[in-house]
């Protein structure tokens, strides 16, 4: 394990990117921070700039308008950066697969700019907060 990955695993700071979600995944992410789930006790912190982030929590189908913005946000993160595709939409476009304005899913758009990106998937519609925590922990433990 490179020291970079090792240093990232202890208290990952995350940046949240909505690329065309229905808000549920997003609200559940915010829910993680509030007293019932409180992920800050694991050192997981939501930050305000991708430049501070160790991981991106990406939700939504990636609409045509959002795609270049997602790539730009990814470009701004310091590498290595783990991308979490949160929710059915982000994993495989979910119920919106046939939408004309949908160019996702997330992994495809991210891989266009970085073929070796580390991408983890947390399915669910929306995934329960517990599932998100478990997904993040599992992904970090295999890195």
């Amino acid at each position: 394990m490179s020291w970079k990955i090792w240093s990232l695993k202890k208290s990952p700071w995350v940046f949240h990117v909505n690329t065309g979600a229905c808000n549920n995944c997003d609200i559940e992410i915010v829910n993680l921070l509030t007293p019932k789930f409180d992920v800050e006790r694991f050192g997981i912190k939501l930050v305000g700039s991708p430049r501070h982030a160790d991981a991106l929590l990406v939700t939504g189908v990636v609409t045509r308008q959002a795609a270049p913005r997602l790539q730009e946000v990814y470009r701004q993160t310091s590498k290595p950066c783990v991308v979490f595709a949160i929710g059915a939409c982000a994993c495989d476009k979910g119920i919106f697969t046939t939408g004309y304005h949908v160019v996702g899913p997330v992994d495809k758009i991210i891989r266009e700019v970085d073929p070796n990106a580390i991408i983890a998937y947390v399915p669910g519609c929306p995934p329960k907060p517990e599932a998100m925590i478990s997904g993040i922990v599992q992904a970090l433990s295999v890195l």
Binding site: V61, Q65, T98
Partner: peptide
């Protein structure tokens, strides 16, 4: 940024499937 073309997708679903789609317009 969030335009997913739901009205068009709806035309391709059956009457009984549409509620699942429209409940995902907005989570709240």
């Amino acid at each position: 940024y969030n335009h997913r073309g739901i009205e068009k997708i709806s035309e391709s679903l059956q009457f009984d499937q549409v509620p699942f789609l429209v409940s995902r317009i907005c989570g709240i």
